[in-house]
Design a protein around this nucleic acid. Structure first.
Lengths: 154, 154
DNA sequence: AGCAGCTTGTTGACATGTCACCGACTTCGC
DNA sequence: GCGAAGTCGGTGACATGTCAACAAGCTGCT
């Protein structure tokens, strides 16, 4: 078996940094959301598109498309949020297979209370350390990596 | 309540991209590892430092420090890996509270079979799309974000 | 109309991760 | 020595995520 091409020290360094940022940034956000609002990142992910939709109602399929989650993940999360009174489920008039997810009053209050602080945290941790030119460059790098990942999936 | 500073469209774009890369890259790696080696990312994370340690044995505390995991997370993961025969637990001679984690022969075979392909995937998806100058710049951006997150935690 | 095949949502089993807590042991100050 | 405080590993409860399978309904072809 031939020796594989390992990462250069520089690459190993950047790779470790990437994983660390991924974890620490996630952790910081989870904690901020939980402490300030009592919401998890998963709660927030679903409440955000719901609160922006007309009437605070979305068909489960649409909600799933917004966040790009698998159906089972979505269903489990909705069940947990339903139990805590953040959303309710209703049958879908158009399609008897379907299920409508409705934001409750409590759910709306919680997302509206959470959003400003959450956005402020994203700005402070992710954008403030970079100039706007650098943000553009960062986005460019991410685009190329995403392209490689997508090519890889096919 | 004053209107909070929302993200600019450019920022919202980059933020969405970042989250997408975070998720898709993770998914691609999990899948590659699972399919090619039958290992999960969590398995790999623990097997890697173990395989590089003298004798393939580490005290749980040291292993935890290597990967920077909480003790309970580590303990749960070791239990699952023990059940699958990747590692064994032994009492620690120096410190009766302690626990030594030993790589089994099977565990060593699996990590050694998995590593080259895993590294190759990291290279292809993460590094090949960028020049080495860009990788350096990327690392610089990550450093600054990490700095902001760490300042935030204190 | 009728049937095959697709879509939609749910469920159960399991892997992973966090939190609070416990029990045992070690360390430190006295 | 000895007791308080800290360290270490583990456990149970729960939240989150993935996968396979299912039930029900929809769609398109004949």
């Amino acid at each position: 078996m031939s020796e594989p091409r390992w990462l250069t020290p520089d690459q190993a360094d950047v790779w470790a940094k990437y994983r660390r940022v991924r974890r620490e940034l996630q952790r910081a956000q989870d904690q901020q959301l939980q402490q300030d609002s009592g919401l998890s990142a998963a709660d927030y992910a679903l409440l955000a598109p719901l609160s922006e939709s007309a009437g605070g109602v979305l068909r489960a399929r649409e909600l799933g498309a917004e966040v790009d989650w698998e159906r089972s993940r979505l269903s489990h999360q909705i069940s947990r949020m339903e139990k805590r009174g953040l959303v309710t489920r209703e049958p879908c008039a158009d399609d008897a297979r379907g299920s409508m997810v409705r934001l409750t009053e409590k759910g709306r209050e919680m997302i509206e209370a959470a959003a400003p602080t959450h956005v402020e945290t994203v700005r402070r941790l992710f954008f403030d350390p970079l100039t706007s030119d650098e943000v553009r460059l960062f986005g460019d790098f991410l685009d190329r990596i995403l392209g490689a990942v997508e090519r890889d999936s096919r």
